[in-house]
Design a protein around this nucleic acid. Sequence first.
DNA 1: CGCACACTTGAAGTCAGTCAATTTAGGTGG
DNA 2: CCACCTAAATTGACTGACTTCAAGTGTGCG
Lengths: 244, 244
Amino acid sequence: MKANRVKCSECALHPLCLPASVSIEEIERLEEIVLQRRPMQRGDRLFNAGENQRAVYVASQGSFKTSVVNEGGEEQTIAFYMPGELIGLDGLSAGAHRCDAVALEPSLVCEVPMASLERLSQKIPGLQWQLLRNIGKSMEQDQDHLTMMGRKQAQDRLAMFLHGLSERQRALGRPSDVLLLSMGRADIASYLGLVIETVSRGLSQMQDQGLIQVQGREIRILKPDTIAAMSHGDYEPTPIRKHA
Amino acid sequence: MKANRVKCSECALHPLCLPASVSIEEIERLEEIVLQRRPMQRGDRLFNAGENQRAVYVASQGSFKTSVVNEGGEEQTIAFYMPGELIGLDGLSAGAHRCDAVALEPSLVCEVPMASLERLSQKIPGLQWQLLRNIGKSMEQDQDHLTMMGRKQAQDRLAMFLHGLSERQRALGRPSDVLLLSMGRADIASYLGLVIETVSRGLSQMQDQGLIQVQGREIRILKPDTIAAMSHGDYEPTPIRKHA
DNA sequence: CGCACACTTGAAGTCAGTCAATTTAGGTGG
DNA sequence: CCACCTAAATTGACTGACTTCAAGTGTGCG
């Protein structure tokens, strides 16, 4: 694996190196241990379930998914990762990964070896708290995922999914009304606890309602407020009265 | 809030104070910041959503749940906590809780103020890594919850739920074949993304199949292997052939 | 003892899953 | 550049499981 030292800022490793309490000098120390891996292609794997956790990762470009395969052999998507989000925090406890991490598109990844991180963290207290804050963020996303799965209506789950992606786009400073999905319908379905056909139908229905515009993996959000309302549970979808 | 200093060992705060790398002397320092709160009753709250995160908590006796209420006003159970499990890690990122934490039964709780933890962690590097490991454990449980919600069959989710509880009992050194549920059916249903009737029916059906024995909140697991198989996905539930 | 609450059970409706057929998109090579 | 081929996505019809609504049965506590 060819890996070069790079400047932290080039690597979009913002979440780890932006704590106000970390000095410039300390950032330089951090940069020394950040390795930039060579570009990855769609389908390439960052790690597999069962492997030792050697590092944590951040995509500077591109996106990833993590997934588990149950005994039955079917895959379940656990999370999607956009640039700047920490990948590989699973197995923080066991020391080994529980998921597979797969690139969804051509991507660039920064890598922070656990050993280096541990060593450095002892010298830079602020770094660990920054790491902790990022882990917290990761847990928040898991919980959002959880509340999404709690929704019984497929349409609501889809709305939450789109709304969530849109917000993450906005957080990256990208337009939040056009989503270029890097994941397939199967990944979405698995992520939402639905089957692929339900996802497809759901998107079509939203399009028919004029809420979004679907062109394959490009989704334009026409009525973000309505999507947000649906994702928050309160929204009466133009009820079809039986005795109109 | 009356709070007394206690020995760590009396408080079941094992997860934080058992790292091998932490010396006896350091443990004593830790004990100084651990506060034992007065007993809590069923329904008492450890914290509410929106409040600042003042501390992390561990129940030495009893159990808790965390939940969120969405805009629609309906509550969703996020997690159940048994003795020794860290409560209050949500809002690690934002600094404020996103959940309510409620006692499910009479309980005893230890409390570690964030400020103290932060201060002490800088002096005891091993402590932070131990904390990290516990956070990892918490994330693992969230992910288990997630995979549970990914199951489409209600019966499978129930099996995973029972299996998970059973394993946690075993980990505590308690009998794993008798579950004394501290949570109501509504909590379980909410946790599993089902309605209360489905949970009730599911348990009844498992009882009819001879897998468990249900008496209100006491559940005896008669065939743990079958429950485990169901919870892992592979299990053909004595298929009801249409043309027998 | 009786009230309130939790849980169970029943019947009917609805929504998502399953199976299957098409349509569309993407990639390769002529 | 287009034809072809494969995989991805959409759409349809149907079945089945879970929800909904409603009634009934327990169980604990004042």
